[in-house]
């Protein structure tokens, strides 16, 4: 489904991704962990098509198509969704109105008819129940004045409505209370199926108790330095990242 090979990216003169390799197969959940500033959000942004980062090398294919040449909206239409670590507040843009426009543009790009207002409302109602979000939120301006946890839940609502084939969750668990964490995990688990994959970026093994990953990777210094099963997350929780740095330096 997603294949990243030797991906390098920089911002201004600073190289951040230094050759990332990652393959995600349909139905898999991959967790990415790693110290602050190691490039996790950069990787997520590059995958979603943010042009402030310059890709200087490598390839990314999604379902066999070259993704790096695509506009962000084309990637969304192909089925990529990024839940942002820091969702932006957009005053004046109504959440429901925006989501309806986005969904219908995606549907149109995929040759589907747009949803009617009534069908959209029905869909929203169902998805809001899934993420246990109060309906007052969707009539507010997008993320404006939302608490940290509410913003994250709004990301999950959008993901549930847009039904991507690859969901990238960038620290969706950060700042969530334990109940909210369970709700988010539950939403992801309900969406899990044989054709839908997830990349979950997190600092905490706790999330992975709820969303059980198939593979855990460690991104450090712009590279994936270690991959393993879900036990790796436990090991990281216990030992931190320093030991990896030493061992990866040794192997170079």
């Amino acid at each position: 489904m997603l294949k990243i090979e030797g991906l390098k990216a920089r911002i201004e003169e600073k190289e951040i991704l230094k050759g990332v390799n990652l393959e995600v197969k349909p139905g898999e959940v991959h967790a990415i962990m790693g110290p602050n500033g190691s490039g996790k959000s950069t990787l997520a942004s590059v995958l979603a098509g943010k042009d402030t980062f310059e890709v200087t090398g490598g390839t990314v294919t999604f379902n066999g198509k070259d993704m790096l040449g695509m506009e962000p909206e084309e990637r969304a239409h192909e089925g990529i969704f990024l839940a942002f670590q820091y969702p932006v507040e957009i005053p004046g843009v109504n959440t429901a109105n925006f989501l309806k426009t986005a969904l219908n543009e995606k549907r149109e790009a995929n040759g589907q008819d747009p949803l009617s207002a009534a069908d959209f409302l029905k869909l929203m109602k169902e998805k809001m129940e899934l993420v246990e979000m109060d309906k007052a939120f969707i009539n507010r301006a997008l993320n404006e004045g939302f608490s940290g946890g509410e913003k994250k839940r709004n990301e999950m609502l959008q993901m549930a409505v847009l039904e991507p084939t690859l969901g990238i969750l960038d620290e969706t668990d950060s700042g969530l209370d334990i109940d909210a964490l369970k709700i988010v995990a539950n939403a992801v688990n309900k969406m899990r199926n044989a054709n839908r994959s997830f990349v979950v970026i997190t600092h905490y093994q706790r999330l992975l108790d709820y969303i059980v990953p198939d593979v855990v990777h460690v991104l450090q210094g712009g590279k994936i330095v270690k991959s393993g099963g879900k036990e790796l997350a436990l090991e990281l929780e216990e030992k931190g990242y320093d030991w990896l740095k030493k061992s990866s330096e040794l192997t170079v």
Binding site: G49, P72, E73, F84, V88, I90, G92, F98, E105, A109
Partner: peptide
Amino acid sequence: IDHDALFYLRSRGMTEKGAKRMLTRAFAND
């Protein structure tokens, strides 16, 4: 137009034009 806001909307599948229009409209809204 705020670059991050534009990217946010586009990452959800809105075209660049549509997203710009929505943000402009939002700006004028108050």
